Deep mutational scan, measured.
Amino acid sequence: SISSRVKSKRIQLGLNQAELAQKVGTTQQSIEQLENGKTKRPRFLPELASALGVSVDWLLN
């Protein structure tokens, strides 16, 4: 799922939720909701993929 991929990649990069949120241009709460499965397809998906160094396709599939 996107939530597990985001969380595992974030941890692999040594980032906390607030640091990832800053790179993406969103809030820590938005990252938390995404990782908890409350958000399925965030509006900041391209920025998120870029910050994590992955493709949008990788996040979604």
Score class of each variant (00 low, 15 high):
L34K: 01
P46T: 13
G53M: 06
E32S: 11
E32P: 01
D57E: 11
S55I: 05
G37R: 05
L59C: 01
N61G: 15
S8V: 10
L34D: 02
L15A: 03
E19T: 05
L52H: 00
A21W: 00
L59G: 03
S1T: 14
Q29V: 11
K9Q: 11
K40D: 15
L34V: 14
N36E: 12
Q22T: 11
L59I: 09
L13M: 12
T27Y: 03
E35N: 05
L15P: 02
V56Y: 08
Q33S: 14
R41Q: 13
T39A: 10
T27M: 05
S4M: 12
L48C: 02
F44V: 03
T26K: 06
Q28D: 06
E47P: 04
S55E: 11
R41P: 10
P42Y: 09
T27R: 06
S3H: 10
V54Q: 03
V6I: 11
Q12W: 06
E19A: 08
A51T: 07
N16G: 12
S3R: 08
Q17F: 07
K9L: 13
S30V: 13
Q29H: 13
G53I: 03
V56M: 13
T27V: 07
L52E: 01
S30M: 15
E19W: 01
N61M: 10
Q22F: 10
K40H: 14
R43A: 15
N16F: 03
I2S: 03
S8C: 15
L48G: 00
N36H: 09
L15F: 11
Q28F: 07
V54W: 01
V24C: 13
N16K: 08
N36V: 10
T26I: 12
A49Y: 00
A21I: 01
S4K: 10
S30L: 13
Q17K: 07
I31L: 08
S30P: 02
L15H: 04
Q29A: 13
E35T: 01
S8E: 14
S50K: 14
K7T: 10
E19M: 07
Q33V: 07
A21T: 00
K9W: 02
G14L: 05
I2W: 04
K23A: 12
S55P: 09
N16Q: 09
K7N: 06
V6E: 01
D57I: 06
L13I: 10
L13C: 08
A18S: 15
G25P: 08
E32V: 12
A51F: 07
S55L: 07
K9Y: 03
P42I: 14
L15M: 14
S55Q: 07
N16S: 15
S30Q: 15
V54L: 03
K38H: 14
S55K: 08
R10V: 02
E47I: 08
S30D: 14
L34P: 02
A51P: 00
A51H: 06
Q17I: 12
R41C: 15
R5Q: 06
L20Q: 02
S4A: 14
W58G: 03
G53K: 06
G53C: 07
L60W: 09
S55R: 06
R10G: 02
L15I: 11
L15D: 03
E32G: 07
L59Y: 01
Q22L: 12
S30E: 15
R10C: 04
V54P: 01
L45N: 01
E35S: 01
R43G: 13
W58R: 02
P46S: 14
S50Y: 10
S55M: 07
Q33A: 14
D57N: 09
S8P: 02
K9I: 13
P42R: 04
V6L: 06
S50T: 12
V24L: 08
A21Q: 01
I2Q: 04
L13T: 05
E19Q: 12
Q17P: 09
A21E: 02
Q33D: 15
Q17C: 11
K9T: 10
K23W: 08
L60G: 07
Q33K: 13
Q17N: 04
F44Y: 13
S3M: 06
A18Q: 12
R10M: 05
Q28N: 07
K23V: 11
L45Q: 01
E35L: 03
E47F: 05
K40W: 12
S55H: 09
K9D: 02
E47V: 08
N16R: 05
S4G: 11
V54E: 06
N61D: 14
L59M: 04
K23F: 10
E47K: 11
A18D: 12
